[in-house]
């Protein structure tokens, strides 16, 4: 029974159903605020997908991710508010900025292994925060950036309304997920995963570590920049707190709960936790009392999160159903899908 439900979840139809739900959500929502929360959750999900590339697939714990999110937001904010750019050129500018900075930081930081990389990026994240806070001539310091332009709808839609903006974000989320699903199944995605399994082994397979890691890092910072730019376009007022390390920690939690290195984990984890913290108001401030132990329990008992554990479970089941001798040809649907999703 459970297995049947599970098999159903793995069908392509399930994805369509989820997309359909997302499309009608603004009509189901009780109020505009819920639509707004959902759009915020989507934005975070995009950033978490980025984190998943470098940390989930490539295995490098990047603690500067929130910093790049903030850079995306600030680039868009400053270009539109101070330099008179309109939204879309500034939006592209934000992507380019995070990609270029991602490249520069990546080239330096990815020469470092494991702990060194994590510590280095922690410091990079903090430098970004300090610069946003102290470099007043450029960033307005603690006052933050106001009057950020909303996306220009070319006379067709008004993105200052919540619902159109929601669809805009949804569009970008779908795009982001589409690319990740393609990436994760491709040879490039497999290359990243091989690096996660170990630098030494990956190199012995002829994989150029630096080139692939930098590529993964740039992709991930660009995702963060995309999310940050959308965020700035939505709230239209940002401050140095966007670069607070706690945002990075939030994203790591979303990623781990959903399932690090999985395809649907980042979305599930982000949506789930954003809604839970939203609905339990007291959690807003003290969410870390739960998130903290949750992280610990997850890495000890369920290191691959909800989706990863689910996929493992379903794979074991499907293997157990096939008699020993025939396992070779057991291309039953769940296995196949699990393989693609893992």
């Amino acid at each position: 029974m459970l297995l049947k439900i599970a098999a159903l979840l793995m069908k392509p139809g399930a994805k369509m159903a989820m997309l359909a739900f997302a499309l009608v959500f603004p009509f189901l929502a009780a109020n505009e605020y819920q639509v707004y929360v959902m759009a915020t959750a989507f934005i975070w999900a995009i950033a978490v997908y980025g984190l998943n590339i470098i940390t989930g697939y490539c295995g490098q714990l990047n603690l500067a991710h929130g910093g790049f999110f903030a850079i995306g937001a600030y680039t868009l904010g400053l270009l539109t508010a101070d330099y008179g750019w309109s939204f879309w050129p500034a939006f592209v500018g934000a992507l380019v900025m995070t990609a270029v900075l991602g490249f520069l930081v990546g080239v330096v930081s990815l020469r470092l292994k494991e702990h060194y990389f994590a510590i280095f990026t922690l410091c990079v994240g903090f430098i970004i925060y300090l610069l946003l806070d102290k470099w007043e001539e450029l960033t307005h310091g603690a006052i933050g950036v106001r009057d950020i332009a909303a996306p220009y709808g070319f006379g067709l839609v008004d993105f200052t309304d919540t619902t159109p903006f929601y669809y805009l974000v949804l569009g970008f989320l779908v795009l982001a997920m589409w690319f990740i699903s393609r990436l994760s199944k491709s040879l490039l995605g497999r290359t990243f995963i091989a690096i996660r399994n170990g630098d030494e082994l990956a190199e012995s397979l002829g994989i150029n570590l630096m080139r692939n890691k930098v590529l993964a890092f740039v992709l991930s910072t660009t995702y963060a920049g995309l999310a940050g730019a959308l965020y700035a376009g939505m709230v239209r007022f940002i401050g140095p707190e966007e670069a607070n390390i706690n945002h990075t920690f939030d994203m790591i939690t979303y990623l781990l709960v959903g399932g690090i290195g999985t395809l649907s984990g980042p979305l599930l984890g982000t949506l789930g936790l954003v809604w839970i913290t939203q609905s339990l108001q007291f959690l807003e401030e003290y969410r870390m009392i739960i998130f903290g132990p949750l992280l610990v329990v997850l890495v000890i008992f369920f290191p691959r999160g909800i989706v990863g554990s689910f996929l493992t479970w379903i794979h074991r089941k499907s293997q157990a159903l096939v008699p020993e001798g025939k396992r070779k040809d057991s291309k039953v649907t769940p296995t196949k899908e699990a393989e693609n999703n893992a």
């Binding site: 940390t55 295995g59 714990l61 494991e114 702990h115 994590a118 706690n246 920690f249 790591i252 781990l256 003290y286 969410r287 870390m288 009392i289 998130f291 903290g292 132990p293 949750l294 992280l295 610990v296 890495v299 000890i300 290191p303």
Partner: peptide, 18 residues
């Protein structure tokens, strides 16, 4: 894997601060 103890340490940090 090495990434796990770092994440767990972050979990402890978040908890104690909260």
């Amino acid at each position: 894997p090495p990434i796990h103890d770092k994440i767990a340490a972050i979990g402890i940090l978040l908890f104690l601060e909260a």
